[in-house]
Design a protein around this nucleic acid. Structure first.
Lengths: 198, 198
DNA sequence: GTACTATATGAGCACCCGCTCGGATCGTGG
DNA sequence: CCACGATCCGAGCGGGTGCTCATATAGTAC
């Protein structure tokens, strides 16, 4: 792992970590990834650089942790929904999943935008890859099991749908936030999915 | 514009610019965006930093120029195909467009990967946004004009299809290059498009 | 040839970066 | 209340970065 660092155990340490993540998010939104620096993050968090390095190996570890937190929240919801919704008709399932995804971005639109635009997807640190990979795995199993899905190459179909839908929502958050305000985009993506699979 | 810089007019100057772009591409592939620096680029290009700054305002101007070149090449092909293929049935049209896109990535897989993973989409410098925006415009007109397309919100549909397809191909280039080797992915994406629109 | 412009050079300045380390301070278990 | 680990501090080091500018060379126009 990237973490050979101390784990925060006392409460004030957890607060420090929290402040650092929050500061990272703020600076990312305000100044962009290029201007991020450990010194700046520490100052903004009201904490010393030394403390920062107790919990994070470097700048990217911070960004990674932030990314993970954001991505994990969406993925969690979606994975639950996918596994739980075996009984629902396909259309309902797709619709509720994608709405969930859109809502997640709507919670913190500026952060979503900054993450999408500023942060490079930097090789192995990329959490997104891991999260999307997991979702692809789950979805391809679901596709194989449901009887209301026409026969497809499940693995490839899952890759296309997961990556496609995620990207559309991400790009919308980045470039056309107004598209996320209603449910229209989500419903249309669900329609796309449904038409492709049945 | 970003360019308050000298334009290369003599041939040797054009060669210098060419060498700089090529060096940028190489370093991007080898070391990633984070390790790019003007000094390094100049050294690799066999040129002095001074020369670099005659033609490019900063590091990102170089990356932008490179991005533009790569993106423009794909977009050109696609826009041509879209406008030219008015006569073709929808299925053929989609298939040939997407195959073209996949082939473009296949030409320089390593560069495509590096661009997708390493380069942040940095605000206004982002050429991709501009290029995709243009394509969305063209496609939404096409959607409105063709009689074999069911009624849809053309603008939103164009956004979804363009961004979705691009992202799937980009992510495939980044994470699953083997998916690009055959035509299967392209054909499946065309199938997706066709089923959505008819 | 001459005069002028386009092009190329690279040492080096000012700056900021990531990161460490020795020492102060806090919190907890006994 | 004490002792010790957990936590925090921040000046400062070594080093790379972006970029400039004085200088030199190549091309062009006459």
């Amino acid at each position: 792992m990237t973490n050979a660092r101390r784990q925060p155990i006392q409460q004030r340490a957890q607060e420090t970590v929290e402040a650092l993540l929050e500061a990272t998010a703020q600076l990312l939104v305000e100044d962009g990834y290029a201007r991020l620096s450990t010194n700046r993050i520490a100052r903004r968090a009201g904490v010393s650089v030394g403390s920062l390095y107790q919990y994070f190996a470097d700048k990217d570890a911070l960004v990674e942790a932030l990314t993970r937190r954001v991505a994990e929240r969406s993925a969690e919801r979606i994975a639950q929904g996918l596994l739980g919704g075996v009984e629902q008709p396909l259309g309902e399932l797709a619709r509720s999943l994608i709405r969930g995804l859109v809502e997640a971005k709507r919670d913190e639109p500026e952060l979503a935008r900054a993450m999408a635009i500023e942060v490079p997807r930097q090789g192995r640190l990329d959490v997104e890859r891991e999260v999307l990979g997991r979702l692809c795995g789950i979805l391809s199993v679901v596709l194989r099991q449901r009887s209301d899905v026409r026969p497809v190459n499940a693995e490839m179909a899952a890759f296309m749908l997961v990556h496609g839908v995620f990207a559309v929502v991400r790009d919308a958050a980045a470039e056309r936030p107004e598209l996320l305000l209603g449910d229209e985009l989500a419903d249309e993506l669900a329609e796309l999915t449904l038409r492709y699979l049945s």
